[in-house]
Amino acid sequence: MHNVELLNITETADSNISNKKAENKKEKIKVDKLNAFFGNVKALNNISLSFSENTVTAIIGPSGCGKSTLLRCINRMHEEVSGTYEGIISLDDENIKDNDPVWLRRKIGMIFQKPNPFPTMSIMDNVTAGLRLNGIRNRSKLKEIAEQSLRQAFLWDEVKDILKQPGIALSGGQQQRLCIARTLAVSPEVILMDEPASALDPLSTNKIEELIFELKKSYTVIIVTHNMQQAARVSDYTAFMYLGELVEYNKTANIFTNPSNKRTEEYVTGRFG
């Protein structure tokens, strides 16, 4: 089922390259000895890795291994469900705890598993919601950014004539792209995606994947996925997690063709998880 030929690997895997670091590119986000808790329950155990600019990193692993928790630590949404963490997460070498979470979340956008447009807002208002929160009121400016974001999310042509209609009147795949446009509109630098295509049909999934490929030109993208082919198709790096620990982190090609850990191999070949 996990067709390795899909990967279209050109570079030869060099498993000796630092397996915690993407080389040549600036490290945008660094996670250092992260332990995350829900109350007394530890969900993440001593995780260290970094995410580089203009790369897509996939996080894979069986259900409950802490993928979402890791993402949610990075944009400090973990705190909103009264979770805590120890260790250091930094954005551009600055500890994220040194800044206002509101400010941080404008730099680190997040896409959720289930499309969640604001149901009482029109398509237009949905896209501009974040901007309006930022205090931008100028209508032509809002319109301009909305169009630009919708184009970036490959949605513009489908909605340009119905911008006044409610966002939830769209199909699931369109809604998800609307949510992506909404996130792009506030011009973040990092985009976290928690299983962004798992609620979508194959065609919509395809579109989202194409989109991710485009996004990496300008953003740092971290995507959680249960779909091995998807991870293989869209990501440059892959992190495999198991029971709250980071088991293996390497170039996607290496993870799928030549995993150094037995568990990783079993997981990516579908023998467990």
Partner: peptide, 21 residues
């Protein structure tokens, strides 16, 4: 739904802005 609140928070809304939404 919680997803609405999260959508707002993830966009960088303050507590009060989440309430407004």
């Amino acid at each position: 739904p919680v997803t609405q609140r999260e959508a707002a928070y993830a966009l960088g809304a303050t507590k009060w802005e989440v309430v407004k939404i």
